[in-house]
Design a protein around this nucleic acid. Sequence first.
DNA 1: CGATGACTTGACTGCTGTCAACGTGCGTGG
DNA 2: CCACGCACGTTGACAGCAGTCAAGTCATCG
Lengths: 258, 258
Amino acid sequence: MPTRKFETVISLRDIKVACQECSLKEICLPVGIGQEDLDRLDAIIDRKRPLARGDHLFRVGDGFQSIYAVRSGSLKTYTTSQDGQEQVMGFQLPGELVGLDAIAEDSHPLAAKALETTSVCEIPFTDLESLSGQIGGLQRQLLRVMSQEIRDDEHNMVILGQKSAEQRLAAFLISLSNRFRRRGFSATQFNLSMSRSDIGNYLGLALETVSRLFTRFQNEGLLRVDRKHIELLDREKLCTYSGAQCAEDDVLQAEPNN
Amino acid sequence: MPTRKFETVISLRDIKVACQECSLKEICLPVGIGQEDLDRLDAIIDRKRPLARGDHLFRVGDGFQSIYAVRSGSLKTYTTSQDGQEQVMGFQLPGELVGLDAIAEDSHPLAAKALETTSVCEIPFTDLESLSGQIGGLQRQLLRVMSQEIRDDEHNMVILGQKSAEQRLAAFLISLSNRFRRRGFSATQFNLSMSRSDIGNYLGLALETVSRLFTRFQNEGLLRVDRKHIELLDREKLCTYSGAQCAEDDVLQAEPNN
DNA sequence: CGATGACTTGACTGCTGTCAACGTGCGTGG
DNA sequence: CCACGCACGTTGACAGCAGTCAAGTCATCG
């Protein structure tokens, strides 16, 4: 382990970032919360200094203190089964929360690791809990977020349960595309911060299968792939491949309040 | 559709069942709630008349009004993809909640159908929400229950993502066994209220594979199976087969407060 | 008692995993 | 600046698990 040379050099807490200025506030927790309530939420949130690629935000079994929101960068969550085999459970992009599964048992069932330089907001749970008892909108939003998480997991179960390798990768790419779009990034061009192995693991496929499919999709003109960079050329057909109601449905889901 | 002949014959609401008398209260919502608060929770819960096998509690797209707790019997939740193909998402046993995934979008993403004669408690969500704003313990418990749901879904993803057919069925049987035990039923002998087809669908397997595995497990002396009835003869080995930390871990998880 | 649906069993196929070799980009150190 | 090593990614050959198709058995119910 290297020594933590940053800590005494500069206090990164000085960086002025608050929920109200955050470009992610429309998709993070503060949806439908008034100005003064937003201030109160903001007051309990701690901006941590960035994680480097490979750093852990928390590990399996760590005591549960806080929920985290990704501000920039990306995370993967995963477990390691007793035979040492890793299972990737998900990837978190900016505006997405991590750690909701730790509430039940007061300890993290998954580890969270930064896939690239990543900054997160730490939200101490006891504070969040008492605040959401006072602010109706916050309580509601918290329940909604958790409900959405359940929904997403159910969606993943469908994919893992009955989709072919081709459908899984197509669905994965469409999902990423939708999530990037919602965050204001390009829906057709983005970087994969995770490895082929992580993707395969997440989708229940061998990494070789993922690699082969990327090649095939490219040959079919569906996308262009160069190492980590992806460009979706035929989003429409990719949707068809994924065998799901994806395209416009997700847009609607993404903006329920408009 | 048959006419609803029961409705005017007898008011089943007269049946005296309340949370405080309910044998399931230790595993349903009212954990860690005081007596008078329990009364208040009890007041908002509606005991519906039993569902017959095949009846729907709700369907995909139904507006979200309430969460339901199974009192007796069992449910399956499922979606139907646009090509008419069904995906079973889960089975609910007594003491388990259904409908938590509907909070996010105010409509049910899954349908819930009774696998046998089943009675449920209906918990109107707006009431629950406002009550949980007033009762700290209830809010906490609600969040815990949702968190646990996320956790369970993650567990299912591991099973679907990287377990063999044999491991999946073994894990499924162990899971059922644990859930029955927790509810005070036998952990080694129970009835499967769902069909082979439902099990296969849920586990991402063909129903023929499920059937073959039952036969094989029986030949290996792991269990005895007669149509719907299951008797686990070697729970230990079944755990090993499932390739997971199951047996005693689940007991601990089941009783976190003892 | 026949019909229907659920389940079982068998034969065959194919998708995807495994093993293995090779290519490519990047960072390190000479 | 170049050479090297390493991690990551690609491609190929082969095999096996589980799906599909099909036939047959069993239980339940009208």
